[in-house]
Amino acid sequence: MTELDSFPAPPPQSTRPELETDYTLSRSDIRHFAEHGFVKLKNVLSPETIEAYEPEITGKVIELNTQHLPLEERDTYGKALLQVTNLWQDSERVLEFVSSPRLARIAAQLLGVQSVRLYHDQALYKESGGGVTPWHADQYYWPFATDRCVTVWIPLQETPMEMGPLSFAAGSHTFEHGRDLPISDESERVLQEALAEQEFAEISEPFELGEVSYHLGWTFHHAPPNTTDIPRRVMTVIYVDAAMGISQPVNKNQEADLANWMPGNQPGETISSPLNPILY
Results as ranks from 00 to 15, higher is better:
residue 165 P to E: 08
residue 77 Y to V: 13
residue 112 G to I: 06
residue 239 Y to W: 05
residue 148 R to Y: 10
residue 127 E to Q: 13
residue 64 L to S: 06
residue 279 L to S: 03
residue 98 V to T: 14
residue 250 V to Y: 09
residue 239 Y to G: 02
residue 44 V to N: 00
residue 176 E to S: 15
residue 208 E to W: 05
residue 177 H to K: 14
residue 114 Q to K: 15
residue 181 L to A: 12
residue 98 V to E: 11
residue 107 A to H: 10
residue 214 Y to V: 09
residue 45 L to C: 03
residue 199 E to M: 13
residue 229 D to T: 08
residue 246 I to Y: 13
residue 78 G to Y: 00
residue 119 Y to I: 06
residue 70 P to V: 02
residue 273 S to R: 04
residue 149 C to D: 08
residue 138 D to R: 04
residue 32 H to Q: 10
residue 223 A to K: 05
residue 212 V to K: 13
residue 65 N to A: 12
residue 41 L to M: 08
residue 47 P to K: 06
residue 67 Q to S: 11
residue 211 E to A: 15
residue 81 L to F: 02
residue 87 L to T: 03
residue 87 L to D: 03
residue 84 V to A: 08
residue 98 V to S: 11
residue 29 D to L: 06
residue 232 R to C: 04
residue 141 Y to A: 15
residue 37 G to T: 04
residue 271 I to M: 14
residue 62 I to T: 12
residue 147 D to N: 15
residue 207 F to H: 01
residue 55 P to W: 03
residue 5 D to L: 02
residue 136 H to W: 09
residue 164 G to D: 11
residue 213 S to R: 04
residue 24 T to S: 14
residue 193 E to L: 12
residue 220 F to V: 02
residue 230 I to F: 02
residue 98 V to K: 03
residue 142 W to Q: 13
residue 155 P to V: 07
residue 107 A to E: 04
residue 23 Y to A: 13
residue 104 A to C: 00
residue 255 E to M: 09
residue 119 Y to K: 09
residue 52 A to F: 13
residue 275 L to G: 05
residue 265 N to K: 10
residue 142 W to K: 06
residue 47 P to N: 05
residue 90 D to Q: 10
residue 28 S to V: 06
residue 106 I to K: 05
residue 216 L to Y: 01
residue 164 G to A: 12
residue 39 V to Y: 03
residue 169 A to F: 02
residue 99 S to E: 08
residue 54 E to H: 08
residue 194 A to I: 01
residue 203 I to H: 11
residue 196 A to W: 01
residue 213 S to G: 09
residue 182 P to Q: 08
residue 173 H to Y: 03
residue 136 H to C: 10
residue 218 W to M: 06
residue 150 V to M: 05
residue 207 F to G: 04
residue 32 H to E: 07
residue 163 M to L: 14
residue 187 S to E: 10
residue 240 V to F: 10
residue 48 E to K: 13
residue 261 W to D: 03
residue 157 Q to G: 11
residue 34 A to Y: 02
residue 4 L to E: 15
residue 54 E to D: 08
residue 100 S to N: 11
residue 15 T to K: 14
residue 225 P to S: 11
residue 29 D to P: 03
residue 38 F to V: 08
residue 119 Y to G: 06
residue 95 L to H: 07
residue 141 Y to E: 11
residue 33 F to K: 11
